[in-house]
């Protein structure tokens, strides 16, 4: 048993062939999940029980079960249901990429909606009252005051969730997708060199994580420019 550097050099390019798929999963389910999260958050803070209740149940179920189980339900379970096979959505659920995207979206949406809600609840009540006293209607207060302030407050936690999502994309390999992790697993099965292959892949993920953190810090600085005392 030894650490084979030439094996890493030949395996890395192969694994990086999957980086496109990793990023497709990350970006697609990240964007769709954010949209879902906004809807869920608005339902939760609507003050109407018939909206907030379903949202709460949804969030509870998706945060209370493993993402891997959710992926398997979508991938193995859904095709068994006739109304899905007969619907226009079938092409999505027939395709492992579609299933992975749907499961990751549904999952991250639940987490992010809670993060956004935390941001909205963190907005200073006095600021909203000032808007009210100036005659801004509820919609205007939400658009011009709550949204920008809440976005700034929610950003650090949101960044962490994007990183969680990146790590979850690796689970797509369990439903036959050849993302970076999927390729690595195939290579390990062929070469039986888990150390070389998995460690070098871990480093690739860490680099991506680092870049996401940098990007988030930059957005945070830009959104939070009003929180700095010196001009």
């Amino acid at each position: 048993m030894s650490f084979d550097v030439s094996l890493i050099l030949s395996a890395l390019p192969k694994m990086l062939m999957g980086i496109g798929l990793t990023f497709q999963l990350l970006i697609l389910s990240g964007v769709l999940g954010l949209m879902l999260a906004i809807v869920l958050m608005l339902m939760r803070i609507s003050g109407k029980w018939y909206l907030s209740w379903p949202a709460q149940v949804y969030i509870y179920v998706f945060r209370g079960t493993p993402i891997l189980v959710q992926i398997f339900i979508v991938y193995y379970g859904f095709p068994q249901l006739d109304f899905i096979r007969d619907s226009f959505l079938w092409p999505i659920f027939r395709d492992p990429f579609g299933c992975a995207t749907v499961a990751l979206t549904l999952n991250t949406g639940a987490y992010v909606s809670e993060i956004l809600r935390g941001g909205v609840l963190g907005v200073d009540r006095g600021v909203l009252e000032a808007g009210e006293a100036l005659g801004l209607n509820p919609r205007q207060r939400f658009t011009y005051l709550t949204t920008p302030i809440a976005a700034r407050l929610a950003l650090p936690a949101y960044g962490n969730d994007v990183i969680s999502l990146l790590k979850s994309t690796a689970l797509a390999s369990t439903i036959t997708l050849a993302d970076m992790t999927g390729i690595a697993r195939t290579l390990v099965a062929q070469t039986y060199a888990p150390y070389e292959i998995f460690i070098s892949l871990a480093i690739v993920y860490m680099i991506i994580t680092f870049l996401i953190q940098k990007l988030m810090a930059r957005i945070e600085r830009w959104l939070g420019r009003y929180t700095v005392r010196t001009s």
């Binding site: 990183i163 690796a170 689970l171 039986y192 888990p194 998995f198 892949l201 871990a202 994580t209």
Partner: peptide, 23 residues
């Protein structure tokens, strides 16, 4: 903390299991 927060969980599990097995 950097390593384990930046690496997918499944990769850690696979590495520990297959790595320890080969060793």
């Amino acid at each position: 903390t950097i390593v384990f927060r930046g690496t997918p969980e499944i990769l850690v599990i696979l590495l520990l299991y297959f790595g320890s097995a080969i060793t």
